[in-house]
């Protein structure tokens, strides 16, 4: 479903991604772990071209998405993204946050989008918050709305960029539960996370990134239980 070939990214002199290649199949839940500055967020952001790759190719469903002919807006419609800092639209109510994209892009009528929004809010456990503004929500609630907003576009792939890193500890659980639920529904997901327990429990596959490359990859049992790479062992010994 997603095929990445020799992805490189430079910010000026800073060589952040030094050739990442990876294949992600449909229905897979892939957790990307690694120390800060290892390039894992950049890798994720290159997948929907919020960052432009300096070199390399990215295919989604066999279609090259970082070529000159790619229609990135159409491709992004099937790749939902959830950010560390939620990025809800503060001037819109929760419901309007969710319906904005499908209505603006004429994918749904206003009525359909609103029904979908209410359904999604129920799914993330926030039915009673449809008409409030984001400012009155807690961090965990904001992130659940952000997930609902991404799901409103009926994406085939969901990208999570450290979805719980900005949350108070007691709110991490409610967000992880929603993501877990989503994983069980068969959604293809790539999750950049520092929650090792969560990665172990939910992911089919774990990628350990360090210094701009994927150092190790495997099932959670392999990576967490019996890491082969010295860097992986060192990292896990610090965080587990």
């Amino acid at each position: 479903m997603i095929e990445v070939k020799n992805l490189q990214k430079r910010f000026g002199d800073n060589h952040v991604l030094k050739g990442v290649s990876e294949h992600i199949s449909k229905g897979e839940v892939v957790a990307v772990i690694g120390p800060s500055g290892s390039g894992k967020s950049t890798f994720l952001r290159c997948l929907n071209r919020l960052e432009e790759a300096t070199e390399g190719e990215i295919y989604v469903d066999g279609e090259l998405i970082n070529g000159p002919k790619a229609n990135i807006n159409r491709i992004r419609q099937k790749m939902g993204m959830v950010f560390q800092h939620f990025n809800l639209f503060p001037h819109l109510t929760v419901k309007a946050n969710i319906t904005l994209a499908p209505v603006t892009l004429k994918i749904m009528s206003k009525k359909e989008a609103e029904e979908k929004a209410l359904y999604l809010l129920e799914r993330v456990g926030l039915s009673d918050k449809a008409n409030v503004y984001p400012a009155s929500l807690s961090g965990g609630q904001k992130q659940r709305v952000a997930i609902a907003r991404a799901l409103a576009m009926n994406p085939e792939i969901m990208l999570f960029d450290e979805p719980t890193s900005a949350l108070d500890p007691e709110m991490v659980g409610e967000v992880l539960d929603v993501i877990k639920d989503l994983a069980q529904s068969g959604m293809t997901m790539v999750i950049v996370t520092h929650e090792m327990g969560f990665a172990r429990e939910v992911a089919n596959r774990v990628l350990f990134m360090d210094n701009g490359v994927i150092m190790e990859r495997g099932t959670p049992q392999e990576v967490f239980g019996n890491p082969q790479n010295e860097r992986t062992r060192l990292f896990l010994s610090k965080v587990l």
Binding site: L50, R76, M79, F83, N87, F89, A146
Partner: peptide
């Protein structure tokens, strides 16, 4: 915040739609 633009674009909105619906009102 740049995150507002990124959120809009990540949903598939064009840069003009993001400007009119998300950035300008704020």
């Amino acid at each position: 915040d740049k995150g507002q633009t990124e959120a809009g674009r990540s949903l598939g909105l064009t840069s003009a739609q993001t400007m009119v619906k998300i950035i300008l009102p704020q």
